[in-house]
Nucleic acid binder design. Structure first.
Lengths: 353, 353
DNA sequence: GTTAGGAATGATAACATTACCAAATCGTGC
DNA sequence: GCACGATTTGGTAATGTTATCATTCCTAAC
């Protein structure tokens, strides 16, 4: 049988020391085969005789050959890469989302290109553009604000897109979200159950899908109970939030409970509460949307709506990979809505702990 | 002068509607020039007559042409891509690092490929490998534990690497870190200044560079004051931490202060403190390494060593981009060490607020 | 008028890989 | 012994871009 190096027409079997990275033809030459055979051994798409395959594998090891993914992507028009765009990375919520996306991507052999939009549609547009230039196979994104046009499918051509956490106006885009409205409504109902009648909503801009949905949940709960709304949407700075809360508390009909739109708003409101020396929950009961790591160690521990950040990122990425695999974008988008969970600590007046 | 469409030998000026993405030769055909001219207009590397350049630019706009970065990378052996590897993304500290890296990369025209090691050297090795296959121009990484061999420069060939937050054994690798040892030492000195004599160190594994450095800072401060160490390194679960603290507090020489190695340890220790009903700072003073968003709202607000996460990511990325630009890896690595800051709140017994 | 020199532009090859087709080899059945 | 089918292998082309070299055209100097 074909002994290795039995010397007939095999090229000199010494392993060449290359200064450049070895390529497929280096491997082919060393193994005494054609490049296609090497390619076949690597991809496993066609049958190669066991002896040849072994010879090729030996050559690959000797040269420490690794296929050039850029060349593969160039040749094959599929890069095994997905793009991930989200507003920020320093926010733990988004960090959790990103973590899940990278995990699922890796599990499926995809590499992740990441970019942040800073909530700015222009930046987001630029990043989408860059990713398309890089030939990503698909995009997972948390849209910047509501600026739908940017992530409308038209712009992307044949590149699939899945949005998560927030929706875009184009309802043909696949999306994964959580029960923002229902979760907020339940939490406000809970506050009402504690006997509160004047409940304030404090949040960021209604431009952001999730914030708006949560506000609508609050509104629904208030309306159903025949109560009047008291909403503030400027919790994007400490000063603004302090001023707003101060004004509310000083007015004749000061709220007895407050519900915040997300962790950032929670932070500013907590800061305001501290500044103004308000006691929680006696003077003001507190509940927020979005749980965070230290929520049980605050003074007092915070009652929040917990949303499954990692599950959302996971579901979105799986959906995207499915779309990439089936190779076409359906006319009508999937809609996955994940449940949220009320985490009752003591800031709302519950005595659970 | 050459009017547009003055009809002599210009190809029909109707804009073709392509189903595929337009390429450079589509642009060239429409503009009636060669591909090289288009290439020159885009890169600006050589002179093109103003009229021709204008004609090319018009064609680019009409076709909505965008250069294919994969082809560019393939041809040029430089991908304008950097790889970022860190342990986790859900940890806000790492999230801050990642955010800074993506920002600086974008500012310099680089795209970021991201991956997580989960603190596992094997996984890290795999990710480095994947990134090299993708021809990244350089790597920024927070090494998984101390497993130096993985991120030793030998493995990377000619691809520059900058590590940050943690060092690797190979001291020829460029690195950006913070004053872990000095910061910890100062904080423990501060506790000693409050009159504490029995100070416990509670942290994660010494396998992690930063944790070990902080422990050494603690050790130094204790030794200098002639005090005995009392360290625990198993704060990687709530149960373990509760058990450890319980044992310490029950022992004859219970600590009067505790210093934690990082946010995760802080979390578990706070949890243990809550479980055991210990009062801070009266029964046990508290200080930790690494500030976090809600540290001023805990009960009581936490005294911590604050480290500049974003600055670190920024410095590391800038250094990497410099290395890529100069095209060679120096024999001896740079070492940037950023200062930390003691943030005194009330958990250590300070009455500042 | 001729030619040298410079500016502008174009043709070609190369980058590493894989799809497609062609060729070689082998065994088997008549 | 020969032909045929199956199995295995190799050659070629193509992917989009840019470096290199060649070519064209124009101006200016003699």
């Amino acid at each position: 049988m074909s002994e290795d190096g039995s010397g007939k027409k095999t090229k000199p079997a010494k392993v060449p020391t290359l200064s450049r990275k070895p390529t497929m033809s280096d491997v082919a030459r060393l193994a005494g085969v054609g490049t296609m055979t090497v390619s076949r051994v690597l991809s496993g798409t066609a049958v190669v005789s066991p002896e040849t395959a072994q010879r090729v594998r030996t050559a690959i090891e000797q040269l420490r050959y690794r296929p050039n993914e850029i060349a593969r992507a160039f040749r094959g028009q599929r890069s095994k890469t997905i793009g991930l765009i989200l507003p920020y990375l320093y926010d733990p919520f988004f960090g959790n989302c990103a973590h899940a996306v990278t995990r699922v991507a890796k599990e499926n052999g995809y590499t992740v290109i990441i970019a942040t939009s800073n909530e700015d549609p222009e930046t987001e547009y630029g990043e989408v553009d860059r990713m398309l230039q890089r030939e990503v196979d698909g995009l997972v994104a948390i849209p910047a604000r509501q600026h739908d046009s940017i992530l409308g499918r038209n712009l992307l051509g044949r590149t699939p897109l899945v949005v998560f956490d927030r929706l875009v106006a184009d309802r043909t885009v696949d999306a994964v979200t959580v029960e923002n409205l229902a979760g907020a409504q339940k939490m406000v109902d809970h506050l009402i159950g504690h006997g509160h009648r004047r409940i304030a909503f404090m949040g960021l801009s209604r431009d952001i899908f999730t914030i708006n949905e949560r506000f609508l949940g609050y509104r629904q709960a208030m309306q159903d109970a025949g109560l009047v709304e008291d909403a503030f949407f400027g919790c994007d700075s400490e000063e603004g939030t302090v001023a707003a809360l101060k004004q509310k508390m000083a007015s004749g009909n000061a709220p007895t409970a407050v519900f915040t739109s997300n962790t950032l708003a929670t932070r500013y409101v907590l800061s305001a509460i501290l500044h103004l020396g308000i006691r929680i929950p006696d003077e003001l009961a507190f509940a927020g949307f979005d749980d965070f790591d230290m929520a049980e160690f605050t003074a007092p521990p915070l009652t929040v709506v917990r949303q499954p950040a990692q599950q959302m990122g996971e579901a979105a990425t799986k959906l995207l990979i499915e779309r990439i695999a089936q190779g076409e974008i359906p006319g009508t988008g999937s809609r996955v809505v994940l449940p949220v969970e009320l985490v009752l600590r003591s800031s709302c007046g519950c005595t659970n702990r």
